[in-house]
Every structure is written in C-alpha cells, then in structure tokens.
Design a protein around this nucleic acid. Structure first.
Lengths: 232, 232
DNA sequence: TATGTCTCGATACAGTGTATCGCGACAGCC
DNA sequence: GGCTGTCGCGATACACTGTATCGAGACATA
C-alpha cells in the first residue's frame, strides 16, 4: 500500500500511566464481575487501554497477578476483639466475608503459599492477638483455623455456584438435583445419606460455617485449659 | 440429565473401543503424571488413540470429566474403625492419602458439589458409621471435618508444589523464600510472624494435619459429651 | 436394495499465556 | 541543535485450549 493512502498511525494516546496497583485493581474488578475465568491478561490490559504485553513490565507471570490479587484483598483482613477465641473467630469470619465479596478468592485460597506483605501483616496480627500462648499450641491452632476456613468457604462458594448455574434459585437447584438424588435414593444404596437429607437439620451456609468453627475453637480450648496431651 | 445416570452410548464396533471408564482412567493417568493442566481433551483423546471430538459422546463438558475423575478416586475412600471418632479420623486420613496419590484432587475438592455414586457411597459409609448420634450434631460435624480436610490438603499440596517449583528440596525452598522473609522481617513489620518462624515448632505436614484434626475431633467430643450448647 | 439414523472426527473459531523483536520515542552527548 | 544509544511498547506469532459445526460413512430397519 502506498504511503499516500496508508492512514497515519492513530494519535498515539499518551501511554496510559500504569502501576502494579492499577493492574491489580482492574483484575479484581473483572474477577468480581465475571469470575476468575474472566481474568485474562488481554482483558486486564484492555480494561486499562493498554496492550497485553505491557503488563509484563509489572508482572512476570499470570500467577503473580493472582498472588497480587489475593494479597490486595488481605489488606482488609485483620482480626478484631480480645482473647484468643475472639481473635481466631473474627479472623475466620473476616476471611469468609472477604470471600463473599470476592468469590474468586475461594478458588485461590490455599492454592499456593501466600507471602505478600498484606497477607503477612494479617497473619502477624492474628499471631499478635494470640501472644502469651504457647507457640506449640498457637502454630497448629492457627493452621487448623486457616485450613478449616479455606475448605469451608470453598464448599460454600462451590454450592452457591452450582445453585446459580441451575437457575438462580435454591428451589430450582433442588429441582435440578433433587430428582437425581431421589432416583439414587430409590435404589436404597445410600440410606444414611437419605435419612440425613430427609430428617437432618437444614442449616444455612452461615450456620454451618459457625458450627464447624465453634467445634474447632472448642477443641483448641480443650488443649489450652487441659494443658495436657490429646486423648486418643 | 446428569452424567451419572445418563447411559453410556452402546458398544459400537468402533475403531478403538471406548468407555467412560477408559476415558476417566486415561485422564487420571495424565493428571497423576503431569498435573491437572496436562488434562486436555486432546491429550486424553490422544492417549486413547481417538479423535478429541469422540469424547463428547461420553461427556458433555470437560467439567463432567473432572467430576468423574473425582468420583473415581472416591471409589477407594471408605472410613474404617469403630466409634465416631475413629470413623471421622480414618475418613480424613484416607482422603489425605488419596490426595497424596493424586495431587490434582487438591485442586478439585470442594470446588463443586460432588454427587457421584462413589462419593455418595463414601458419604453414606461415614454417616452410617455415625449412626445413633443426633443428626443435629452429625451433620455439622461431618461438614466441618470435610471442610478441614479440604483446606488442609490444599495447603499441604500448595506448599509441596512451591517447594518443588523452587528446586526439589526443602532446603532449597528455604533458600528461595528465606532471604525474602529475612528482608521482610528485617524491617520489623511482622514481629509475631518472625518469632513464630524462629521460635515456633517446625511440624511436618502430617503432624500439622493430625494436630488440627484432633482439635476438631476434641471439639466435637465436647458437644457429644456435654450435650449442651457451645459456650461463647 | 433403499432409506433413515447415528456416530466419527476433520475443520474451524475464538480464546488463552507468553516469546520474540522491530519500531519509535526519549535521554544524553558532541 | 543534531546524532546516537537505549529502552520500552506492543504487533505479531506460536502452540495450545474447549467446543460448535457438519460432511462422510457405517449400521439398522423397511
């Protein structure tokens, strides 16, 4: 094509000013709106009016971006309250609330060790709130609470998504899986599950989360008060 | 109609005989060898000497294949032992062992509700082992143990991968993250974390898992023996 | 034998993460 | 003020993903 008819290059928008922070915020916006799958380097870059390759000046890898997203959320995760029990409980509840605001967190938590500054600060605050207690108890206790929270929110979000996928409503979810379960039960192969579904309590997600958390805290309390070893 | 009850297509004197089972086994082999990312429909089909589109006769979606993989593993997950405590403990340990054999399970567990026949049978066995106990306690207790296990194995596998990624050795992992943590500590911003790392116990993954599990079981024991409500 | 049904899989599409590298813009120097 | 060296941007490319489409061929039935 000859110069004469070749269009001039578009007025090069002054390269949009960029920062790791802006990138992470854009990625979080995308993930909040459409889930983690919607976070592609191309889309993040597009949201910032920037070429995809530009991002590689700020991060080496998509995984690093995900790590930064997690750490950004941890900026708002701090335990509150007095006493070991309240510290651990509020920590757990705060993480859960964060997951409610950012469902994609459920996909990332526990997936790889998080050592970002905000995550470290959050962990530091929890440990500081437990100062004075024997480290031999604190370390496994904190690990256990974290493990529980990760697993619990994962299941909670997983179920929520399954419900949403089958039509937005718990009634409709039951309509989708109910008949399947009915047929599975009809064969009589899962009587214990069947009686649980029929006669068991129907706790909502929050009640289930808190009930499990209290079990765990009660168990930690046993160790703290008993001071002895765990009974077999 | 869900995968589990949808009948397989009839045996067809096809170029390569195929079955849902063969597909799932091939997928599991790939995932065991090279991780979940190595499970692509093309690679699975390739391992079976078959075109990729052939698989869609047996599954509707890749997610269904992942569900089938999880359910296949649950075929070997059954609790053993007598008494609620031993049932829950052995269930947890068995799941953990399965995750050790199939690390990709850690990426899938809790991600979506599992209602396959083997998973239902496993859950049924656990509930049957808890027969006689008040369902108001059993339901949250089982949920809590499952949540804990999911979170715990996720972290365990996540850490194991991070170590492996940085050179195969725990020493080398500490060499990779150690200096970073040293620098972070040097600023004095995470004193509680620092003292934990320096003075805290260094439990291995198995000890940590069991310690947290015993906390949880102790907490459930409190409810079972006390019979009363949880103290605030 | 003709017809209808069904399955296979080649091809295609839109998307992914990221390596490569030429071009253009800027900074510093003569 | 003009030249040159450096550097970062981002177009292009690559290998790969999950899956929709659809023509071709095989089988069962009429």
């Amino acid at each position: 094509m000859l110069v004469w008819e070749r269009p001039e290059p578009p007025d090069r928008a002054a390269p949009a000013p960029l920062s790791r922070d802006a990138i992470v915020r854009a990625a979080i916006r995308l993930a909040d709106a459409d889930g983690l799958d919607a976070v592609s380097l191309r889309k993040v870059a597009g949201a910032l009016d920037v070429g995809p390759m530009r991002l590689y000046g700020y991060i080496d890898t998509k995984e690093e971006l995900l790590d930064l997203m997690v750490d950004a959320v941890y900026a708002g995760i701090r335990p509150a309250g007095d006493g070991w029990r309240e510290v651990l409980r509020s920590h757990a509840e705060t993480v859960r609330r964060a997951v409610h605001r950012h469902e994609w967190l459920a996909d990332l938590l526990g997936g790889r060790p998080q050592l970002g500054p905000n995550t470290l600060a959050s962990g530091n605050a929890v440990l500081a709130g437990l100062a004075g207690i024997d480290l031999d108890t604190v370390v496994p206790a904190v690990a256990a609470v974290n493990a529980y929270v990760v697993g619990a929110v994962r299941r909670e979000i997983g179920e929520r998504r399954a419900e949403r996928a089958s039509g937005m409503d718990k009634r409709q979810w039951q309509a989708a899986y109910g008949p399947y379960l009915e047929r599975a039960f009809a064969a009589g192969r899962f009587p214990a599950v069947e009686s649980m579904v029929r006669d068991g309590p129907h706790l909502d997600a929050g009640e289930t989360f808190r009930a499990g958390l209290e079990f765990l805290l009660d168990g930690i309390a046993v160790r703290l008060s008993g001071g002895g070893s765990t009974p077999r």
